[in-house]
Structure formats: structure tokens, C-alpha cells
Nucleic acid binder design. Structure first.
Lengths: 202, 202
DNA sequence: GTCTATATCGGGATAGAC
DNA sequence: GTCTATCCCGATATAGAC
């Protein structure tokens, strides 16, 4: 039974998420969060005792998007190459919808390493599943043997970085033309795939 | 004629650079900068009227390291493949020495787009020189024709991202073992090179 | 140029009524 | 649960002596 009115707590969390991600912890303002949520500061402190608590709640929620849930794609019945394509495609999409997320996370964990460790535990990030799968293909002989860690990091890099550095890249490569850059990112889904394939197919 | 005593202004700039890069503009504290520089807050304001000014001075100084000066490598007499190797090697080195720089820059330009535009002008960043050079090799026939923009972005991505995301990657891939991750980054100089070569050599 | 002392203000947090 | 009013501290910035 869904409420038409979102609960106050939910409204706060949404507003806080937006504020924290765009401004960072230090730049975020409780007043601003309250305003966006349509309430006042006092109520904020009623729900979450202080700024720190509120932040942690948001961070925990948000971390999972950085390392993709799309990992599940890899447990499907598709062929390996299809899985790869789905992964790249899906991940670039997710990042495009939340382009500020990675920088936010990377910025914050610099000062609060514990955030990272906690979140990793909660999320159960396990690249080993995918790594194992890739290695299996290699011993099976369907893929050229290459260092798997580097391969995975390369793949992530080529998906994440261009989104993260979009403000700069857009300027440098396309003189600030937003449309052209969006198009560029769209093309990447194909090229990154080909790029990866190139190094592992026999 | 070099002074044995660094000028006060220089000491301030160094201290400020460190503080801003690690904490970001909002997290940085004037008091902390003063202390690190061995002076007091008032003197800080004497040299740079306010925090904003000081920040801009630092940012301008620092931006150039993000897009490498190593571009000059590309004007040398080396063969194309040697140039490529030098570039990757040198860039990963630079980043390793300033691993926090990229996140700092990306975080700050999110709220102050003008910083980016100004810095780009000052630095005269021009990927077109390299792009042109790569394209020349392609028409000459010594390289397989691939989309140059994507190729360059891929190369940057694979160099920058692993350094930027080091805190996470170190945890996920090597259970936090610093030594292993350093070693991993060292290996990358070779693998990224091979990875790139693989997609462009005939 | 460099210092101490102080003004000013913004923002997180709390008290207490409804 | 939600509000108004207020406290209080930390941080930028300035005044003014040396």
C-alpha cells in the first residue's frame, strides 16, 4: 500500500542526497536540505541527530551504485561476449544518470576511510566472481590469456572516467557542446566493447 | 640568485596547496594553512585578501599537472610507439606523485565552472596536436584506423582512473595491501601500453 | 611585513511550545 | 511530529600596534 505522501524521512533523505552529492559534506548546508525537503532545520535534527548521521545514511544508500549491481548480469545465461556488452552498456547508462556520484564518493573517502570499509562490507562487492568467470573462459581456451585484474580495471576505467571527467572532456574535446559529448558517450558503449574484445579474443 | 629562506608568499602557497588539495575548498581552514606556513591568519589576509583569492592562486598553479606537460614528449624524435610508451610511463608517474590532484580538480570545478574555463585558457591544453599526430600515422598506414577521440580518452582513462580510485581499488583487489597496489600500478605501465598497441597496430 | 586582539557572521545544534 | 526562537562555537575577516 503505497502512500501518496512520501514520508518525511524519505523526503529528507532525497534532499540530503542531492545536497551532499553536489556540494560534498563540508559544502552541504542543513538549512538547504531542510528547505528542499519542505521542512525546517529542527525537524532534521529530530530525525537524524546531526549532520554526520544524516550523511552516513545517505552515503550508505548511494555507494552501491558506484560498483554496479549489474554484476548480476554476469550470472545470466547469455554468452560471455553478450554479458560483456550488457555490462558496459548498462554501467555507462547508470553513470550517465548519476554523473556526480563517483567524484563525490572518491572525494569523501579521502577524509573518511572508514566510510569505504563499512560500505564495502554492506554491499558485498566481489570482483572475484567476475574475475573467476573471465579466468575460466581463458583456461577453457575461448579467450586469450591476459592479466585479469588489469583487464577489469581497464574496463571500469574506460566506463567511469569519461563520465566523471565529463565537464573537462566536454570542453577540451567538443568546445563545451553538451550534445556532442552525450553522443560521444553513447558511441563509447560500442567502442569500449570493441576495445576490450580486441585484447581478449583469439 | 636563490634565497635560502623561501619567501613568505611561497610558503603560504605551498601550505595552501596541501590544505586545499586534501580537504577541498570548503573543508580547508585558513588557520591550518597559516600554521603549516609558520605564520598567522592575519598575514594570510595581508598577502591574499581572502580565502577565495588564495584558492584561485593555488588552483591555477596546480591545474596543469592534470593534463600532462608530457605532451612535449610527443614532439621529440622518437618513434611513435616509443612516444606512446614514454607518455604512459611518465603520466602514471606524475599521477602517482599527486594522486589526490584529479579528484580535487574534478570536485571543485563542479561548483565553479569558471575555474575550468580560465585554467584551460592559461594552460593552452590542446589534445588536437596529439590527435593530429595519431591520425597522421593512420593515413600513413602504419596504424589501424580507429576513432582517435575514443583512443585518447581510453588512454587517459586507463592511466588516471586507477590512481584516482586507488583507495577503493586497493581495498577491493588487494585487501588494502599498499605494496601490492603500488606494484599493480607499476605493472600497468606495461599493460596499458600493450593494451593500446593491441588496438592500433596492424 | 608581522603580530595580537577583536569584530562579525554563518551554520549546526538545542529548548520548549504546540 | 512539527514549529519558532535561540544558543553557541568556529571560521573568515579586519583593526591597529609594533
Amino acid at each position: 500500500m503505497k502512500e501518496l505522501e512520501k514520508s518525511t524521512e524519505l523526503k529528507i533523505l532525497e534532499a540530503a542526497k542531492l545536497e551532499f552529492i553536489t556540494k560534498g559534506f563540508d559544502g552541504a548546508r542543513m538549512q538547504q536540505i531542510a528547505t528542499k525537503a519542505g521542512i525546517n532545520k529542527a525537524l532534521l535534527h529530530y530525525y537524524f541527530r546531526n549532520k554526520e548521521n544524516l550523511f552516513k545514511a545517505v552515503f550508505g544508500n548511494v555507494f552501491g551504485d558506484f560498483f554496479p549491481k549489474i554484476m548480476t548480469t554476469f550470472q545470466s545465461e547469455l554468452s560471455f561476449f553478450e554479458k560483456l556488452r550488457f555490462f558496459i552498456d548498462g554501467y555507462i547508462n547508470v553513470l550517465n544518470k548519476n554523473p556526480k556520484l563517483p567524484v563525490f564518493i572518491l572525494h569523501e573517502i579521502q577524509h573518511r576511510p572508514e566510510l569505504l570499509l563499512n560500505s564495502l562490507k554492506e554491499q558485498g562487492v566481489n570482483p572475484k566472481i567476475i574475475a573467476g568467470m573471465v579466468e575460466a573462459e581463458m583456461v577453457k581456451g575461448s579467450l586469450k590469456p591476459v592479466p585479469v585484474a588489469h583487464l577489469l580495471v581497464n574496463m571500469l576505467s574506460m566506463c567511469i572516467f569519461p563520465v566523471v571527467a565529463a565537464p573537462i572532456m566536454r570542453e577540451v574535446l567538443f568546445d563545451g557542446n553538451e550534445k556532442k559529448y552525450k553522443n560521444f558517450l553513447e558511441e563509447r558503449k560500442q567502442y569500449v566493447y570493441e576495445f576490450i574484445i580486441n585484447t581478449i579474443k583469439k
